[in-house]
Amino acid sequence: MILITGGAGFIGSHICVDLLNEGYDVAVIDNLSNSRKESLTRVEEITGGTITFYENNLLDRSALEEIFSKHTIEAVIHMAGLKSVNDSVSLPLTYYKNNLTATFVLLEVMAEFNVKTIIFSSSATVYGKPASNPITEDFPVSAINPYGRTKLMIEEVLADLWNADSEWSISILRYFNPIGAHPSGKIGESPNGTPNNLMPYVAKVALGQYEKLTVYGDDYPTVDGTGVRDYIHVTDLALGHVKALSKAMQGSGHEIYNLGTGEGYSVLQLVRAFESASGRSVPYEVTGRREGDVASCYANPSKAEEKLGWKAEKTITDMCEDTWRWRSHNPYGYASGE
């Protein structure tokens, strides 16, 4: 059985689809702080499979030990964590306690039950302000906000764990910017409250739920002055986890992989692509830059292709069309109304 922490969330639910389709038994632990159990019900509808679900917080060690006692866990995909950059700046202690302490508890319980294979959900934020693009895994790391620092600290903890005990098999996946939704339109990104990410906000503007999009800065040295990011379809990203899991279960090791497309798109290019996919207008207003934002950030994903046989296949058009299908069928996400 594979245990996914935070598995009811946007990326986790899509990973569940691929794991079930590959024949794995799947258990999910999620406290539903920024997700809904409905996502897993829909995963079961898509796949015809069954997910064992536990509504618990990773800080609850006894609950975690009970799960490991009840099941033969072969590996853990660790997705759980608070993820808002802005919130992390205003609530650093909350972020450090939740993201770091929960991971320590998880790793201790894994060691206790001799489960030593883990796929960790990291982030391109660990690269800070990269000196150049595309970004390879050996670039210097220096997070510039508490959220990014929690990811970087966990990466360092995992490296120390591997150095201390080479029986561990650790894969660290540095995501770039996941967007899109499952082609069925049944599961997708459904943040509680105001979205922190660009794509769900764009979709809400297209639906008329928000008046306009705020674009933070149009004076960057980019194609149109707006920030450029590497957007990756969530189904491509999910497949990357399955490939990394398969590799990690073959033997011990410690590896880091970028999961991105290798292409950058600006905010306004994404807006135009979404308008084309949806047939809706996305009004926007330009304001000043946000502190900590970088002009451009996109991956060199060649290591994942070489070592895992994985490559992102979906285009920016696919990402926008699938997002619109999800949001137009589920205008309030998994909620009945907001």
Score class of each variant (00 low, 15 high):
165 D>N: 11
166 S>C: 00
168 W>L: 01
169 S>R: 01
170 I>M: 04
170 I>A: 11
173 L>W: 07
174 R>K: 14
174 R>I: 08
174 R>F: 08
175 Y>T: 00
176 F>K: 03
176 F>T: 07
177 N>A: 14
178 P>E: 06
182 H>R: 07
183 P>W: 04
184 S>G: 05
187 I>R: 01
189 E>R: 08
189 E>D: 15
191 P>E: 09
193 G>Y: 11
194 T>P: 03
196 N>D: 15
199 M>E: 10
199 M>D: 06
200 P>Y: 08
200 P>K: 10
201 Y>R: 06
203 A>H: 06
204 K>Y: 13
204 K>D: 15
205 V>M: 10
209 Q>E: 14
210 Y>K: 11
213 L>P: 00
215 V>W: 14
216 Y>T: 12
217 G>C: 10
217 G>P: 02
219 D>P: 04
219 D>T: 13
220 Y>G: 01
220 Y>P: 02
221 P>V: 11
221 P>A: 08
221 P>T: 08
222 T>I: 07
222 T>L: 04
222 T>R: 07
225 G>D: 09
225 G>H: 07
227 G>F: 07
227 G>D: 07
228 V>L: 02
231 Y>R: 01
232 I>L: 13
234 V>L: 10
235 T>N: 09
237 L>G: 12
241 H>F: 06
241 H>A: 13
241 H>Y: 15
242 V>H: 01
245 L>F: 13
245 L>M: 10
247 K>F: 15
249 M>T: 02
249 M>A: 10
250 Q>E: 15
252 S>Q: 09
252 S>L: 03
253 G>F: 11
257 Y>P: 05
258 N>P: 02
263 E>F: 09
263 E>Q: 12
265 Y>G: 00
267 V>W: 04
273 A>C: 04
274 F>M: 12
275 E>R: 00
275 E>H: 00
276 S>G: 01
276 S>M: 00
277 A>H: 06
277 A>W: 05
277 A>K: 01
280 R>Y: 07
281 S>F: 05
281 S>Q: 14
285 E>P: 05
285 E>M: 01
285 E>Y: 08
287 T>Q: 13
289 R>L: 05
290 R>M: 13
290 R>C: 02
290 R>W: 01
291 E>P: 02
292 G>K: 15
292 G>F: 06
294 V>P: 06
295 A>P: 12
297 C>T: 10
298 Y>Q: 07
299 A>R: 09
300 N>F: 13
301 P>D: 11
302 S>R: 12
302 S>D: 15
304 A>H: 09
305 E>V: 00
